[in-house]
Amino acid sequence: MNVSVTQHRLTGVAAIRPKPAGGRLATVRRLAIAIAVRAAGFALLVAIWAAASTQFLAVQLPRPELVLQALSDNLITAPSLSLQGLQGGYLSNVGYTVANTLVAGLVGGSVGFFVGAASARVQVVRNASSPVLLLFGTVPDLVLAPFLLIWIGPGRAAQFVIVAFFCFVILAISTQNAALRLPTRYEESAATLGAGPAHRFRTIVLPATIPAIIGAARIALGTAWGLQCAGELLGSERGVGRVVVLSQQLSFTAGTIAVILLLGAVAVAVDTALVLALRTLCRWSAGEGA
């Protein structure tokens, strides 16, 4: 029997309730409810914002429709910002930020995953990686940014190193933890069934750590967008950070909010894709898919 315990009243009485009914119709209904709740949450945010904006000047906190206006005015080309030397509109600059973040995240994250997994099973790799992981697991790697600006100059390469290194550290630590936490019985059982180290790694360690890895990827990416922007704030010709700096120089707050929201929308979309990937890859997992 498949029942779940849910609560009703104030945090209070727990009752045993059936799990949602099966069937295609029920799935559609559940999806519709989930979307409705999200839409309502979004509407609530916009409502709070609209209410707050009546108390401020438009340069301080513009009304939502002004931000939409700014978005549509500057999407393809940004006339006012181009006078200050910006190429393209919001779309191409958000594209620059997204492409950089994703490429750097993918490169750094993949390397981090392999180093993390290997460090949990090969002592040499553990010894070589732990100084870096221990240090940058506690200290933000943004402190490296000024040095990168000197050594490789402002621009794409410096931003890449910051974001990739950050994702490397997060993924390596998470993968290492997950692989170390994995109960030995699974690998022992596989070994008694004749699986060698490489085979065990591929068939036991890798799948068992995937929920933790995707969780870590979500956390890493969530911060990586901001880190990429911070790199751009420190010195860049393009990207969301650059648009924000130029917009604020003109006190064009609506533009700042518009471009941040546009990047936020992409971030939500990528995060949703990761959640879906998690659900697909980890149907066996009881907890983490939700």
């Binding site: 969530g222 967008w225 901001g226 880190l227 990429q228 922007c229 911070a230 704030l233 969301v240 950070g241 924000v244 700096v245 604020q248 707050t253 700042t256 909010i257 941040i260 929201l261 990047l263 936020g264 971030a267 939500v268 995060d271």
Partner: peptide
């Protein structure tokens, strides 16, 4: 939470 919060610094 999904917004790039560091980018709100100039704001």
């Amino acid at each position: 939470g999904a917004l790039p919060l560091i980018a709100t610094l100039p704001l």
